[in-house]
Measured scan of single mutants.
Amino acid sequence: MTYRVRIENADGEVVTIEISADELREKGLTLEELLPPNARIVEVEEVEP
């Protein structure tokens, strides 16, 4: 499974990243732990691999 994640950074700019569930598991991280300081998740969407 892959996630498309929209993130708002500290400057108010919204960027989109895609990350797979396998990648998260391998790194032992959650989506929140990948965020840079002062950023927030705006939207998470599951996409087909």
Rank of each mutant, 00 (worst) to 15 (best):
M1T: 10
T2D: 04
T2M: 15
T2P: 01
R4W: 06
R4Y: 07
V5L: 07
R6F: 11
R6N: 03
R6Q: 08
I7N: 00
I7M: 08
E8S: 07
E8Q: 13
E8N: 03
N9W: 14
A10W: 11
A10K: 08
D11R: 09
D11T: 09
G12S: 03
G12Q: 03
G12M: 03
E13K: 11
E13G: 09
E13F: 12
E13S: 15
V14L: 13
V14T: 09
V15S: 12
T16M: 10
T16V: 14
T16A: 04
T16G: 02
T16P: 01
T16W: 13
T16E: 07
I17C: 13
I17W: 14
E18M: 14
E18W: 15
I19R: 00
I19P: 00
S20M: 07
S20L: 07
S20V: 04
D22W: 15
D22T: 12
E23L: 13
E23I: 10
E23N: 05
L24N: 01
L24K: 01
L24Y: 03
R25Q: 07
R25H: 10
R25W: 09
R25E: 08
R25G: 05
E26V: 12
E26T: 12
K27L: 10
G28T: 03
G28L: 04
G28D: 05
G28M: 06
G28N: 10
L29Y: 06
L29Q: 06
L29G: 05
L29R: 07
T30R: 10
T30H: 05
T30D: 04
L31E: 00
E33G: 07
E33Y: 05
L34C: 07
L34T: 04
L35A: 04
L35N: 01
L35Y: 03
L35W: 03
P36Q: 04
P36D: 05
P36A: 05
P37W: 07
P37E: 10
N38T: 05
A39Y: 14
A39R: 04
R40H: 09
R40L: 08
R40N: 07
I41T: 02
I41Y: 03
I41F: 05
V42R: 03
E43D: 14
E43W: 15
E43F: 15
E43P: 01
V44C: 08
V44E: 01
E45D: 06
E45T: 14
E46D: 04
E46W: 13
V47F: 12
V47D: 03
V47Y: 11
E48F: 15
E48W: 15
E48N: 14
P49F: 14
P49D: 12
